[in-house]
Protein backbone atom coordinates (compact mmCIF):
# COMPACT_ATOMS: atom_id res chain seq x y z
CA UNK A 1 0.00 0.00 0.00
CA UNK A 2 2.77 2.46 0.79
CA UNK A 3 4.08 2.10 -2.72
CA UNK A 4 0.70 3.38 -3.88
CA UNK A 5 0.73 6.26 -1.42
CA UNK A 6 -1.67 4.73 1.06
CA UNK A 7 -2.19 5.25 4.78
CA UNK A 8 -1.46 1.58 5.49
CA UNK A 9 1.52 -0.58 5.19
CA UNK A 10 3.74 0.52 8.03
CA UNK A 11 4.65 -2.76 9.68
CA UNK A 12 7.66 -1.65 11.71
CA UNK A 13 7.16 -2.06 15.46
CA UNK A 14 5.80 0.99 17.20
CA UNK A 15 8.50 3.17 18.71
CA UNK A 16 5.99 4.83 21.05
CA UNK A 17 2.93 3.56 22.88
CA UNK A 18 1.25 0.47 21.45
CA UNK A 19 -2.30 0.04 22.69
CA UNK A 20 -5.48 -1.77 21.82
CA UNK A 21 -8.99 -1.04 23.09
CA UNK A 22 -11.97 -3.33 22.58
CA UNK A 23 -15.71 -2.92 22.78
CA UNK A 24 -18.15 -5.75 22.19
CA UNK A 25 -21.89 -5.24 22.39
CA UNK A 26 -24.50 -8.02 22.52
CA UNK A 27 -28.28 -8.05 23.07
CA UNK A 28 -28.98 -8.50 26.80
CA UNK A 29 -32.15 -10.51 26.18
CA UNK A 30 -34.37 -7.84 27.77
CA UNK A 31 -34.51 -5.40 24.86
CA UNK A 32 -31.29 -3.68 25.77
CA UNK A 33 -27.61 -4.10 24.96
CA UNK A 34 -24.90 -5.50 27.24
CA UNK A 35 -21.14 -4.94 26.99
CA UNK A 36 -19.42 -8.25 27.78
CA UNK A 37 -16.16 -6.69 26.66
CA UNK A 38 -15.13 -3.12 27.42
CA UNK A 39 -11.38 -2.85 27.63
CA UNK A 40 -9.48 0.37 27.26
CA UNK A 41 -5.79 0.44 26.53
CA UNK A 42 -2.94 2.93 26.89
CA UNK A 43 -4.15 6.39 25.99
CA UNK A 44 -7.72 5.24 25.27
CA UNK A 45 -10.00 4.84 28.28
CA UNK A 46 -13.56 3.63 27.76
CA UNK A 47 -16.49 4.62 29.99
CA UNK A 48 -19.97 3.20 29.86
CA UNK A 49 -22.20 6.28 29.96
CA UNK A 50 -25.95 6.80 30.21
CA UNK A 51 -27.73 6.16 26.93
CA UNK A 52 -30.75 8.20 25.90
CA UNK A 53 -31.87 5.20 23.86
CA UNK A 54 -32.94 2.32 26.19
CA UNK A 55 -32.13 -0.27 23.52
CA UNK A 56 -28.56 0.94 23.06
CA UNK A 57 -25.40 0.81 25.14
CA UNK A 58 -23.36 3.98 25.12
CA UNK A 59 -19.59 4.16 25.46
CA UNK A 60 -17.57 7.36 25.69
CA UNK A 61 -13.94 7.44 24.59
CA UNK A 62 -11.86 9.36 27.11
CA UNK A 63 -8.29 10.42 26.36
CA UNK A 64 -6.17 9.17 29.27
CA UNK A 65 -2.93 10.79 28.12
CA UNK A 66 -1.63 12.92 25.25
CA UNK A 67 -1.88 10.77 22.16
CA UNK A 68 -1.41 9.86 19.45
CA UNK A 69 2.21 11.01 19.38
CA UNK A 70 4.58 10.19 16.54
CA UNK A 71 5.50 6.50 16.77
CA UNK A 72 2.38 5.48 18.70
CA UNK A 73 0.20 2.68 17.44
CA UNK A 74 -3.36 2.73 18.69
CA UNK A 75 -6.06 0.26 17.71
CA UNK A 76 -9.72 0.41 18.68
CA UNK A 77 -12.05 -2.47 17.85
CA UNK A 78 -15.79 -2.05 18.28
CA UNK A 79 -18.22 -4.81 17.47
CA UNK A 80 -22.00 -4.75 17.61
CA UNK A 81 -23.13 -8.37 17.45
CA UNK A 82 -26.39 -9.27 15.65
CA UNK A 83 -29.29 -7.37 17.21
CA UNK A 84 -27.11 -5.19 19.47
CA UNK A 85 -27.22 -1.39 19.48
CA UNK A 86 -24.04 0.50 20.37
CA UNK A 87 -23.30 4.18 20.43
CA UNK A 88 -19.72 5.36 20.81
CA UNK A 89 -18.87 9.01 21.30
CA UNK A 90 -15.96 11.01 22.67
CA UNK A 91 -15.37 13.34 25.58
CA UNK A 92 -13.03 15.69 23.74
CA UNK A 93 -11.20 16.25 20.49
CA UNK A 94 -8.19 14.03 19.80
CA UNK A 95 -4.93 15.81 19.10
CA UNK A 96 -2.38 14.26 16.77
CA UNK A 97 0.93 15.48 18.18
CA UNK A 98 4.55 15.28 17.07
CA UNK A 99 6.56 12.57 18.81
CA UNK A 100 10.17 12.17 19.75
CA UNK A 101 10.79 10.21 16.56
CA UNK A 102 10.10 11.05 12.93
CA UNK A 103 7.93 7.91 12.77
CA UNK A 104 4.27 8.62 11.99
CA UNK A 105 1.59 7.65 14.50
CA UNK A 106 -0.94 5.00 13.56
CA UNK A 107 -4.55 5.04 14.61
CA UNK A 108 -6.70 2.15 13.44
CA UNK A 109 -10.38 1.73 14.10
CA UNK A 110 -12.07 -1.55 13.15
CA UNK A 111 -15.84 -1.61 13.33
CA UNK A 112 -18.05 -4.66 12.87
CA UNK A 113 -21.83 -4.73 12.84
CA UNK A 114 -23.83 -7.95 12.64
CA UNK A 115 -27.25 -8.63 11.16
CA UNK A 116 -29.89 -6.35 12.67
CA UNK A 117 -27.24 -4.59 14.74
CA UNK A 118 -26.62 -0.88 14.78
CA UNK A 119 -23.60 1.19 15.57
CA UNK A 120 -23.23 4.92 15.96
CA UNK A 121 -19.56 5.89 15.78
CA UNK A 122 -19.52 9.58 16.69
CA UNK A 123 -16.14 10.59 18.12
CA UNK A 124 -15.08 14.20 18.55
CA UNK A 125 -12.84 15.74 15.86
CA UNK A 126 -9.25 14.81 15.22
CA UNK A 127 -6.97 17.84 15.23
CA UNK A 128 -3.73 17.60 13.30
CA UNK A 129 -1.19 19.67 15.19
CA UNK A 130 1.74 21.33 13.41
CA UNK A 131 4.65 18.92 12.98
CA UNK A 132 2.58 15.80 13.66
CA UNK A 133 2.11 12.91 11.25
CA UNK A 134 -0.77 10.51 11.66
CA UNK A 135 -2.02 7.69 9.50
CA UNK A 136 -5.53 6.70 10.34
CA UNK A 137 -7.51 3.76 9.01
CA UNK A 138 -11.21 3.45 9.72
CA UNK A 139 -12.60 0.18 8.47
CA UNK A 140 -16.07 -1.24 8.86
CA UNK A 141 -17.42 -4.70 8.05
CA UNK A 142 -21.20 -4.71 7.87
CA UNK A 143 -23.68 -7.53 7.51
CA UNK A 144 -26.33 -6.85 4.84
CA UNK A 145 -28.93 -6.01 7.52
CA UNK A 146 -26.58 -3.89 9.68
CA UNK A 147 -26.92 -0.17 10.30
CA UNK A 148 -24.07 2.27 10.76
CA UNK A 149 -23.78 5.99 11.40
CA UNK A 150 -20.14 7.11 11.26
CA UNK A 151 -18.80 10.61 11.62
CA UNK A 152 -15.21 11.53 10.89
CA UNK A 153 -14.09 15.13 11.36
CA UNK A 154 -10.60 16.44 10.74
CA UNK A 155 -9.25 19.82 11.70
CA UNK A 156 -5.99 20.88 10.10
CA UNK A 157 -3.99 22.74 12.72
CA UNK A 158 -5.13 24.41 15.93
CA UNK A 159 -6.42 27.98 15.55
CA UNK A 160 -4.10 29.91 13.27
CA UNK A 161 -1.58 27.07 13.18
CA UNK A 162 -0.15 25.18 10.22
CA UNK A 163 -1.48 21.68 9.71
CA UNK A 164 0.41 18.51 10.45
CA UNK A 165 0.27 15.62 7.98
CA UNK A 166 -2.89 13.58 8.23
CA UNK A 167 -3.70 10.62 6.03
CA UNK A 168 -6.98 8.79 6.56
CA UNK A 169 -8.51 5.85 4.79
CA UNK A 170 -12.14 5.02 5.29
CA UNK A 171 -13.13 1.64 3.91
CA UNK A 172 -16.54 0.09 4.39
CA UNK A 173 -17.60 -3.34 3.19
CA UNK A 174 -21.12 -4.64 3.32
CA UNK A 175 -21.84 -8.32 2.89
CA UNK A 176 -18.20 -8.73 1.87
CA UNK A 177 -18.48 -6.26 -1.02
CA UNK A 178 -16.93 -2.76 -1.12
CA UNK A 179 -19.43 -0.01 -0.30
CA UNK A 180 -17.15 2.99 0.26
CA UNK A 181 -13.42 3.44 -0.03
CA UNK A 182 -11.93 6.87 0.39
CA UNK A 183 -8.54 8.18 1.33
CA UNK A 184 -7.74 11.73 2.32
CA UNK A 185 -4.22 13.06 2.62
CA UNK A 186 -3.59 16.59 3.88
CA UNK A 187 -0.77 18.75 5.14
CA UNK A 188 2.91 19.29 4.37
CA UNK A 189 4.14 16.73 1.86
CA UNK A 190 0.70 15.87 0.42
CA UNK A 191 0.89 17.34 -3.11
CA UNK A 192 -1.88 19.78 -4.07
CA UNK A 193 -3.86 19.24 -0.85
CA UNK A 194 -4.66 22.93 -0.37
CA UNK A 195 -5.41 23.70 -4.02
CA UNK A 196 -8.75 24.18 -5.72
CA UNK A 197 -9.38 20.46 -6.30
CA UNK A 198 -8.95 19.22 -2.73
CA UNK A 199 -9.50 21.72 0.11
CA UNK A 200 -9.14 25.19 -1.43
CA UNK A 201 -8.08 26.87 1.82
CA UNK A 202 -10.60 25.15 4.10
CA UNK A 203 -9.19 23.89 7.38
CA UNK A 204 -11.89 21.49 8.51
CA UNK A 205 -13.24 18.53 6.57
CA UNK A 206 -15.75 15.93 7.57
CA UNK A 207 -17.72 12.95 6.45
CA UNK A 208 -20.92 11.52 7.79
CA UNK A 209 -21.80 8.06 6.56
CA UNK A 210 -25.22 6.49 7.10
CA UNK A 211 -25.73 2.89 5.99
CA UNK A 212 -28.88 0.85 6.40
CA UNK A 213 -30.95 -1.66 4.45
CA UNK A 214 -33.79 0.89 4.04
CA UNK A 215 -31.53 2.93 1.75
CA UNK A 216 -31.73 0.07 -0.78
CA UNK A 217 -35.49 0.60 -1.12
CA UNK A 218 -35.58 4.37 -1.08
CA UNK A 219 -32.27 5.97 -1.98
CA UNK A 220 -32.04 9.64 -1.04
CA UNK A 221 -31.53 12.05 -3.93
CA UNK A 222 -28.23 13.91 -4.08
CA UNK A 223 -28.49 17.24 -2.33
CA UNK A 224 -26.26 20.27 -2.21
CA UNK A 225 -25.97 21.88 1.24
CA UNK A 226 -24.79 25.43 0.72
CA UNK A 227 -21.55 25.91 -1.18
CA UNK A 228 -19.33 23.55 0.77
CA UNK A 229 -21.23 20.34 1.52
CA UNK A 230 -23.10 17.66 -0.34
CA UNK A 231 -25.27 14.65 0.44
CA UNK A 232 -24.51 11.82 -1.97
CA UNK A 233 -26.30 8.48 -2.23
CA UNK A 234 -23.71 5.74 -2.67
CA UNK A 235 -23.99 3.03 -5.32
CA UNK A 236 -24.97 0.70 -2.45
CA UNK A 237 -27.47 1.26 0.40
CA UNK A 238 -25.84 4.21 2.09
CA UNK A 239 -25.49 7.93 1.95
CA UNK A 240 -22.38 10.01 2.50
CA UNK A 241 -22.28 13.64 3.53
CA UNK A 242 -19.03 15.37 2.59
CA UNK A 243 -18.33 18.83 3.96
CA UNK A 244 -15.49 21.32 4.10
CA UNK A 245 -15.54 24.36 6.36
CA UNK A 246 -13.25 27.10 7.66
CA UNK A 247 -13.27 25.60 11.18
CA UNK A 248 -14.53 22.75 13.37
CA UNK A 249 -17.58 24.62 14.65
CA UNK A 250 -18.99 25.38 11.23
CA UNK A 251 -18.16 21.87 10.06
CA UNK A 252 -20.16 20.32 12.92
CA UNK A 253 -23.10 22.61 12.21
CA UNK A 254 -23.34 21.34 8.62
CA UNK A 255 -22.93 17.68 9.57
CA UNK A 256 -25.51 17.98 12.35
CA UNK A 257 -28.01 19.54 9.95
CA UNK A 258 -27.43 16.65 7.54
CA UNK A 259 -27.85 14.05 10.30
CA UNK A 260 -31.45 15.09 10.82
CA UNK A 261 -32.56 13.96 7.38
CA UNK A 262 -30.06 11.25 6.45
CA UNK A 263 -30.40 9.04 9.51
CA UNK A 264 -32.78 6.14 9.99
Amino acid sequence: MDGAGGCDGMTAPATGVSARARIRAVPDGRGGTALPSLAGGGPVALRRTRSADPAAARVTLVGAMSAPLGGDRIVIEARAEPGAALRVDGSAATLALPGRTAEPARYDVHLQVGEGGRLHWLPEPLISVRGSELRQHLSAELSPGARLVLRDEQVLGRAGEESGRLCTRLSVRRGGRPLLDQQLDFGPGAPGWDGGAVLGGHRAVGQLLVVGPERAQEPLPARVLGDSAVVTPLAGPGVLVTAVAPDALRLRRVLDSALTFTSW
Binding site: M1, G3, A4, G5, G6, R169, S171, P178, D181, Q182, Q183, L184, D185, G196, A197, V198, L199, G200, V205, A222, R223, V224, D227, S228, A229, V230, T232, T242, A243, V244
Partner: peptide, 25 residues
Protein backbone atom coordinates in the same frame (compact mmCIF):
# COMPACT_ATOMS: atom_id res chain seq x y z
CA UNK B 1 1.13 0.80 -12.34
CA UNK B 2 2.66 -1.05 -9.40
CA UNK B 3 -0.58 -0.99 -7.41
CA UNK B 4 -2.51 -2.28 -10.42
CA UNK B 5 -0.76 -5.63 -10.16
CA UNK B 6 -1.84 -6.11 -6.54
CA UNK B 7 -5.17 -7.04 -4.96
CA UNK B 8 -8.23 -5.03 -6.02
CA UNK B 9 -9.13 -4.11 -2.43
CA UNK B 10 -5.67 -2.59 -1.92
CA UNK B 11 -5.92 -0.25 -4.91
CA UNK B 12 -5.47 3.43 -4.02
CA UNK B 13 -8.64 5.26 -3.01
CA UNK B 14 -7.27 8.81 -2.92
CA UNK B 15 -10.08 11.31 -3.08
CA UNK B 16 -10.64 15.08 -3.08
CA UNK B 17 -13.54 16.56 -1.07
CA UNK B 18 -13.99 19.62 -3.28
CA UNK B 19 -14.14 17.54 -6.47
CA UNK B 20 -16.99 15.50 -4.94
CA UNK B 21 -18.84 18.54 -3.60
CA UNK B 22 -18.52 20.72 -6.69
CA UNK B 23 -19.44 17.88 -9.08
CA UNK B 24 -22.91 17.77 -7.53
CA UNK B 25 -23.20 21.56 -7.59
Amino acid sequence: GTAGSGAVEDLPAASAPLLEITAEQ
